[in-house]
Amino acid sequence: MTSIDVRDLTKEYGTRRAVDHLTFSVRPGRVTGFLGPNGAGKSTTMRLVLGLDRPTSGAATVGGRAYASLNEPLRHVGALLDAHAAHGSRTGRDHLRVLAASNRIPVRRVDEVLEETGIASVARRRVRTYSLGMRQRLGIAAALLGDPGVVMLDEPSNGLDPEGIIWIRELLRRLAAEGRTVLVSSHLMNETASFADHLVVLGRGRLLADTPMREFIDARVQPRVRIRTTDPTALKRVLARHGHDAVEHADGYWSVHHARVDDIGLLTSAAGVPILELAADEGTLEQAYLDLTASEAEFTAPPQEV
């Protein structure tokens, strides 16, 4: 299968550097979440990969080749950049037929992706009558048209309703399970946490992180154990004896920092402390992301207009 390789990629618009010596790879078989605040260079990077913008220096390749050199590129890479790219006066089906024709994709695929993205019933309506969620699905349908090994989606959950968000999550998981290379940009942390295996984080056009999502969180957020008991005194005593520190929260539970449930569970049961609830309080992607951005000095400066 094919991966996306970005090597020392730099893009300047006038004096503004949108992408700054970026190097990373997106591997097949997993969903890579592409994170960063607005203006961090996510969309620019995607346009550079697609050969739409010319890099100032460096290169981006798909499967080792420049996108522009691909024969019938929609069969290799499917991308959603902008849900508004479809012309409002065309029907959704005609929009896809036009794209399919240019890459010799059979019309049968048009009807398949319309079915797959759940917009078959509105396929013969003009795109201008579509809701944002429907346009987003049409954009995803266009990305899937050529059954590509690489799928790149820029903010795909924009405008989707709750069912749509669940649908896109399952779609992304499935695409990765089929061995495809999946890159999905987002600025929504909880959303990304629900589908990503791996993360590439940008800030001001530079690479801040390129790690598996679990590692990214574990490295930045200390694990905690959440515990409820009927006998706080006994709990505190047993924890203190083993060097743990318990903090009480207002709504009646205690949290133990730098600890794992496996250890705390054994300790408390051995000491006969009555336990009502014992749970791992795992760090969230949002906490880890905020920790990362806080440690980036640049982000603490007042935001500049981009």
Partner: peptide, 18 residues
């Protein structure tokens, strides 16, 4: 001009990069 509507040109050139 219909190509420049809503950046549709990007979709067209992604399909036909030459």
């Amino acid at each position: 001009s219909t190509e420049y509507h809503g950046n549709g040109i990007r979709l067209s050139l992604a399909a036909v990069p030459r």
